[in-house]
Design a protein around this nucleic acid. Structure first.
Lengths: 155, 155
DNA sequence: GAATCACTACTCGGATAGGGTGTGTCCGAGTATACATGG
DNA sequence: CCATGTATACTCGGACACACCCTATCCGAGTAGTGATTC
């Protein structure tokens, strides 16, 4: 899995703590973690395409959260960065070669694909079941000073 | 995820249906699905290193299951092919840059890492909860002719 | 006839190239601000 | 003093290289079987 997911999650939390009334440019977000600015910008573009953040150009421009943390799940961010395709993609080798099964013969998919799909569904369900708001609450509980320090640093 | 996982799962089932008294060379297994023989051999080597199959060289050599299907889970095969590293690897960017948290300050890991780890644990748990024996039983129930046909083709 | 030995064919195993996706960088389009200018 | 036009600086957005891992291939090490040779 690409590391852009980790960057995107941290940035979403930071944007929330900074407040949605201010737009933060990618360069500043990158500076906080010493990440490649242009590449982080690319990841944030993906978040913008997914409707998670909104972007504005020009001076005083940048990124801000498009909706509250309560309506952003881990799944949303992962899907925005990694794409919607499943990790395990069945190439249907069962329909090739001498022992080929007729593709349309059984309406159900390849059983291996179904089994792997069940596991991936459990993964997605877990990701979709946790919002960034819960994550933010956990951080504020275990490290109360962090959000304030971040808001101050970006000020 | 690499497609070698799909190949390995099909091959394990085929080896089980053929019977463990016979060793099947990689070339023959590849021929059944028209896969690149040498590359499939590489995947089977990974299964051998993981102790899922045993390999014997020379004439009448090949691969055979090292233990019954009841003791092989989807997780075993995935770990053998893909490696033991988790898909999401936290790069600890939280410990870098101006807002660096001291690494040893909190004994618990980065909360984002923990959240992603929970999801991945659900995935692994689902994979580890299903054995190839159950998968084989499903196939024999929905497509009763397949195992016999495979055993016949490899004969 | 039986045992031994060399030879052959076959298989795995690791070392070696090629391609595709993720990683990283650069420059142009667009915009809001600030300033100068004129009424 | 206020409105307007212009220049400017700043930001995103997409187009352009680089690198690493997955994919694919090839050849050597080792082994079991086979046949010839010898006692």
């Amino acid at each position: 899995m690409g590391e852009g997911v980790e960057w995107a999650l941290h940035c979403c939390l930071n944007l929330a703590w900074i407040g949605e009334e201010r737009a933060v440019p990618a360069v500043k977000l990158a500076g906080y973690y010493e990440l490649p600015p242009a590449y982080l910008n690319k990841q944030l573009q993906a978040l913008a395409r997914a409707g998670i953040v909104s972007s504005t150009s020009g001076p005083k421009g940048g990124f801000r959260l498009a909706r509250p943390l309560e309506r952003i799940t881990l799944m949303d961010v992962v899907a925005a960065i990694e794409g919607p395709e499943p990790a395990f993609r069945c190439t249907e080798i069962i329909t090739q070669g001498p022992g080929a099964q007729a593709p349309g013969r059984d309406p159900e998919r390849c059983l291996i694909d179904r089994a792997m799909g069940r596991a991936e569904l459990a993964w997605r369900r877990e990701l979709a079941g946790q919002t960034l708001a819960e994550l933010s609450a956990d951080v504020e509980r275990t490290m109360p000073g962090v959000p304030g320090r971040i808001r101050r640093w970006f000020g």
